[in-house]
Nucleic acid binder design. Sequence first.
DNA 1: TCATCATATCATTGATTTATGATATGATGA
DNA 2: TCATCATATCATAAATCAATGATATGATGA
Lengths: 120, 120
Amino acid sequence: MLIASDQLEVSLKAKLFRGFGDPSRLSILEALRDRSLTVSQIVEATGLAQSNVSNHLGCLKDCGLVMAEQTGRYVTYRLSDDRVADLIALAESLLGDIARGVYECTRYNLPKDQETSSDA
Amino acid sequence: MLIASDQLEVSLKAKLFRGFGDPSRLSILEALRDRSLTVSQIVEATGLAQSNVSNHLGCLKDCGLVMAEQTGRYVTYRLSDDRVADLIALAESLLGDIARGVYECTRYNLPKDQETSSDA
DNA sequence: TCATCATATCATTGATTTATGATATGATGA
DNA sequence: TCATCATATCATAAATCAATGATATGATGA
């Protein structure tokens, strides 16, 4: 059985992973992989709405995955630690071998096209 | 701007991370870190309900993060790849330095005790 | 000071996900 | 075959999350 402090640690770890676990946040992190960017550059790189980007950035910053630096009216974001990029790289490597499985993991995530209803 | 195939890849990666991004699933993965376990051993190790464990195991299996092997009426699960454990270890290392931030990342996740309302 | 730009915040709505309890399946030994 | 055990599946209710549009903040240059 898990004891309380383990549960807290697991929750924190899960929360950390959840930082990477949303396509919008992950594309922000990926955009920041090789260079720091202002918010508007991130908006442009990801194609997301500005308020959406800003919300996700706030989350990523609170979580310590990115850092912000204000310059005039611009705010530049960068990954706060090399291990953030390392985690993404490791996930990519793993994904290379299990992509089909992840793709088919529709248990909790059938997006729009659940069944085309023609083959029921 | 992201092009379509990038978006697919980002979605897959995010989905992979989401496999780790739930406390229940993560504690299952952690229980399997150093040894394979039957479903009932996982139930006991995590304290989760059996149907809940089974649901999460199904998800983890579909995603390729764990493998199952049936023996009699028991089904034994193990991590499918060393990199699954590596990802957890790397996250732990990162968390060691940013734990406070993750803890305070309440933007999307204030659980039960939002404000004790005494200090408003 | 004013208009404008870059970014942040907020409430709301819709979508997705999680836990639960009930039940089904399929293996085992009596 | 029957009762039992281990696991899986399913529907549903509850919780959580993400995107949006509107608006606020705070910096800049005219």
